[in-house]
């Protein structure tokens, strides 16, 4: 078996999710040959220190910064000439933007956002559906299969190191296509809260139902001495400002306590809070994925539980 892992990297800074994908491929029980492929010259040396067979650095000025149409063309050529069995990516926002296009161009399947890959006669791809509630095992009969690995599914610090990788620099021809042009990346002005340094966070999800109910959660936060965080929909509805959003497109936090109220625990939310020291979740649905990572799971209606919990915490604090 022959596999490729695409390494997303900028000026020598390798995307962690790409390394997680590499780790996933390395851990396959019948280990395939592995080529790490990158457009970033500055990451070649680091990559050659991993336990892989080859580092392939593709060179073309159009690949210097993100350019979806140029990226598709470069990788399309590599897949056509090298015909790997697996071509893996980290499931980054950048991969979301161009890898489906590669799949359509080559007419080969792209199994996106996998949480696990394993080998049993055939490669088996596990991905979650219904917002994390159900796991689904798939196989592919295609000569080449493209896959992406969900952020956090493997550990980047478990990538095996090695010293036998060969390094290959290859020029690639690309016809410039100007239909898509990118401006510089920017960050919207930061808000005033510093969630990344908060020790205690009470986070509000769509289960809160309406804006008028938010004070219930705020009182709980006050009783604990916690900051307020939230899931994305609550920000989308305009109930909580954007700078309180936790998750892949908001903040990544790791407080001593993360108390999630009415949050289902979709992966894009989990990415932002999985590293918390203690996680408590209140949710009426016992199957909610948030419970998969919770230390304490309270199954029930937040409107019944929160006021009682708030009162009990106040009482406890007075006593101690």
């Amino acid at each position: 078996m022959k596999s490729f892992v695409f390494i997303q990297s900028e000026a020598g800074v390798i995307n962690k999710n790409s390394l997680e994908a590499l780790c996933g491929i390395q851990k396959l029980s019948s280990r395939p040959s592995i080529t790490a492929i990158t457009f970033d010259e500055q990451s070649v040396e680091t990559l050659s220190g991993y336990n892989i067979d080859r580092v392939l650095h593709l060179k073309n000025p159009l690949l210097q910064s993100y350019n979806p149409l140029a990226y598709v063309e470069a990788i399309q050529k590599i897949i056509q000439t090298e015909q790997p069995n697996l071509f893996a990516f980290g499931h980054t926002y950048e991969a979301r933007d161009w890898v489906p296009r590669l799949s359509a161009r080559l007419d080969i399947p792209f199994i996106s956002d996998c949480t696990k890959i394993r080998f049993e006669n055939n490669t088996i791809f596990t991905r979650h559906i219904y917002q994390g509630k159900i796991a689904c095992d798939l196989t592919s009969s295609s000569e080449t299969t493209i896959l992406s690995i969900q952020s956090g599914s493997y550990r980047s610090d478990e990538v095996d190191s090695g010293s036998s990788a060969t390094v290959e620099n290859q020029e690639v021809d690309i016809v410039e296509d100007k239909r898509i042009s990118q401006e510089d990346k920017f960050q919207e002005s930061k808000g005033t809260v510093d969630l990344a340094n908060s020790d205690l966070i009470v986070s509000i999800g769509r289960g809160i139902e309406k804006e008028e109910n938010i004070p219930i959660a705020e009182e709980l936060a006050q009783a604990i001495g916690a900051e307020i965080g939230s899931s994305r929909p609550v920000v989308d509805y305009g109930w909580v400002p954007h700078d309180r959003q936790i998750g892949s497109s908001g903040h990544i936090v790791s407080p001593k306590l993360y108390l999630a109220v009415g949050i289902s625990g979709a992966v894009q939310h989990q990415v932002g809070m999985k590293g918390s020291e203690a996680i408590i979740a209140i949710n009426k649905d016992k199957n909610a994925p948030i419970f998969e990572i919770a230390d304490i799971g309270i199954v029930g209606d937040i409107f019944e539980i929160i006021p009682k919990l708030t009162a009990a915490i106040k009482e406890h604090k007075q006593k101690s």
Partner: peptide
């Protein structure tokens, strides 16, 4: 990711 944007 993480609060960054890009115009295209």
């Amino acid at each position: 990711e993480a609060g960054w944007f890009q115009w295209t």
